[in-house]
């Protein structure tokens, strides 16, 4: 096995049982996927496309019905090693209110390390460090319910990194936040990836966030439909629209201009890149 493959999905299938109807609802179908150590992967898809289930399969909240998921070589079906897996892969959820357990910020961050049975001095050190990394150290004695959504989500992230995981899976962490909160969370996650080499799996349906990832995976009906770096993925405008997603306006505009015979770079990701291209063309002309 290659060392760089941190998470491996091998022909994974997963279905929920609909108790009322007595039928099986397929969510994940024959999914194979590897995530390298230190990567920043964004998983995109409309609601119900299986992206949340994929996230839950990464740290053994759910286990595949067929196929297998390996985390750093450990099979997630091995129940004896479940906490080893969760120590390696931390998870942040959508609603910040529903994942904070303590009434004081620093106590909440300490919750994970306490469960690991680490010495009090070491917990203290990790909690302080984690809070500094997410820039919430000044709020360590605050009550969580008095913080903004973005701040709460950063506390939740601190609670995960205090467990010193190798990978963080974030399941739509920005869906309930305002634009400022979204920026704060994205900045924090990017920093953790770049500075500390933590592998990130970021689930979202916001294109502007996916643009910042190293790799983008687009899912639809339990399958991967696109996989590549953001520039490649966003040029597939028709596929993205077919699966109910947006395309960055800059990218779409560049494509439209190309169709009308204007030779402009197709893989622009944001307005500033498009602006440079437009100005480049204008200057060539003069």
């Amino acid at each position: 096995m290659k060392m760089s493959n941190f998470i491996e999905f091998e022909n994974v299938c997963f279905a929920y049982r609909d108790e009322e109807e007595g039928t099986e609802v397929k969510v994940i179908e024959n999914l194979s996927l590897t995530v390298d150590k230190g990567d920043f992967v964004c998983v995109l898809g409309h609601n119900g496309c299986g992206k949340s289930t994929t996230a839950k399969l990464c740290n053994a909240i759910l286990v595949p019905q067929s196929g297998r998921v390996l985390v750093d070589g450990i099979d997630t079906r091995d129940e004896d090693k479940i906490n080893d897996i969760r120590k390696k892969v931390g998870m942040v959820f959508q609603n910040p209110d529903n994942q904070i357990v303590a009434t004081i910020v620093e106590d909440d961050v300490a919750f994970g390390p306490e469960n690991l049975g680490i010495s009090p001095e070491e917990i203290r050190r990790r909690v302080d460090e984690a809070l500094k990394q997410v820039e919430m150290y000044d709020f360590r004695l605050s009550e969580p319910h008095k913080l903004s959504g973005g701040q709460k989500q950063r506390v939740a992230i601190a609670g995960i990194i205090a467990m010193q995981p190798e990978c963080i899976v974030l399941d739509e962490p920005t869906a309930m936040l305002d634009p400022r909160g979204r920026r704060e969370v994205m900045k924090t996650v990017k920093m953790l990836n770049e500075k500390f080499g933590i592998t990130v799996i970021f689930i979202t349906h916001y294109m502007d966030e996916a643009v910042k990832a190293k790799r983008v995976i687009v899912m639809d009906e339990g399958k991967i439909v696109l996989d590549g770096n953001p520039r490649e993925v966003f040029t597939h405008i028709d596929t993205l629209k077919r699966v109910g997603l947006d395309v960055p306006e800059a990218t779409e505009l560049a494509m439209l201009l190309n169709k009308d015979g204007i030779k402009i770079e197709k893989d622009v990701l944001d307005i500033d890149e498009l602006l440079d291209c437009v100005i480049g063309l204008l200057e060539d002309k003069n």
């Binding site: 740290n59 909240i61 906490n83 969760r86 120590k87 931390g90 998870m91 959820f93 609603n95 529903n98 994942q99 357990v101 620093e106 106590d107 300490a110 919750f111 994970g112 390390p113 306490e114 469960n115 690991l116 049975g117 680490i118 010495s119 009090p120 917990i123 203290r124 909690v127 609670g159 995960i160 467990m163």
Partner: peptide
């Protein structure tokens, strides 16, 4: 949600748990 979040943070009850404070 909370039960999920807690078990993701390796909570398995009181045994083997240490306290920061």
């Amino acid at each position: 949600d909370l039960a999920f979040a807690m078990s993701c943070r390796c909570y398995t009850g009181g045994d083997g748990r240490t306290r920061m404070k």
